[in-house]
């Protein structure tokens, strides 16, 4: 696996109620292409901030984020939007799907913001969306609306949407949050399949230990830094949580 994502001295300071909160305290990190990374840690440990900084969503106070050697935070708004659209497929825990659009339109939505002319080909795009939805066992629901779907089905649609622009990185924040264990396992299996079949680099933020069985790399965050001692990840996570 070659080096793909790199952060150097990444710091993020939030100003909350007149007080400085240091969410990231100089994180150095390397993620290889095709890796399946799960960020774990207690709430407030900085995992979401780190991932959103890598995804071009949160500007760091200090440090660099290099994707294929390019510092994404030197891009302007338009370039950064283009980068997010082209390179990253996002999945969120909630507020993910637009309720007015059916499944098919939700999946193709990222393409309407794309500057790539191939992605403007409506028919090709629809075929691709249906193919993805078929892979995710959602073909029968292409015309359904989000309100008509179960939690697991909504996640599958969100995964299909994350893949529509064929990004190299899939970035998911709590993709299995609020799901029952059976559905959670199904979603995790899908992620594994995406990592294997589509060769995507997966970066997942989760509190769930179920991911430990499938992830290639586990990164535990504690107080804005990466917890280095990962001899026993579960113990490390528990330690991080208990000591916080």
């Amino acid at each position: 696996m070659s080096e793909f994502i790199e952060t150097k001295g990444l710091k993020k300071i939030y100003h909350v109620g007149g007080q400085k909160v240091e969410a990231l305290k100089g994180v150095d990190l390397e993620i290889a292409k095709g890796d399946f990374v799960v960020f774990m840690g207690h709430s407030g440990s900085g995992k979401t901030t780190l991932v959103s900084t890598i995804g071009g969503l949160t500007r760091p106070t200090e440090g660099t984020v290099l994707i294929e050697g390019n510092d994404i935070w030197k891009l302007n708004d338009k370039q950064l939007s283009h980068f997010r659209n082209r390179k990253i497929g996002f999945m969120f825990q909630s507020f993910s799907l637009l309720p007015t659009l059916n499944v098919l339109n939700n999946v193709v939505m990222p393409a309407i913001f794309s500057t790539n002319s191939e992605r403007k080909d409506t028919e090709a795009l629809k075929s691709k969306a249906i193919s993805l939805l078929t892979d995710l066992d959602m073909k029968r629901k292409v015309n359904s609306f989000p309100s008509e779907l179960s939690g697991g089905e909504q996640r599958r649609v969100a995964i299909a949407r994350a893949l529509i622009n064929d990004p190299e990185i899939i970035l998911a924040d709590e993709p299995t949050g609020e799901l029952d264990i059976r559905t959670e396992r199904e979603v995790i299996d899908i992620f594994c399949q995406i990592n294997k079949t589509y060769q995507k680099t997966l970066i997942v933020v989760s509190h769930s230990l179920t991911w430990l069985e499938k992830a290639k790399t586990i990164i535990v965050m504690k107080d804005g830094l990466i917890f280095k001692d990962l001899a026993d990840p579960v113990e490390a996570i528990m330690e991080g949580v208990c000591k916080s």
């Binding site: 996002f90 637009l98 990222p110 913001f113």
Partner: peptide, 16 residues
């Protein structure tokens, strides 16, 4: 506002 954030995250520029 959250929906707008989601649109931005999936690649909508300010102008879009």
């Amino acid at each position: 506002i959250r929906e707008i954030g989601m649109l931005k995250a999936i690649g909508a520029s300010r102008f879009q």
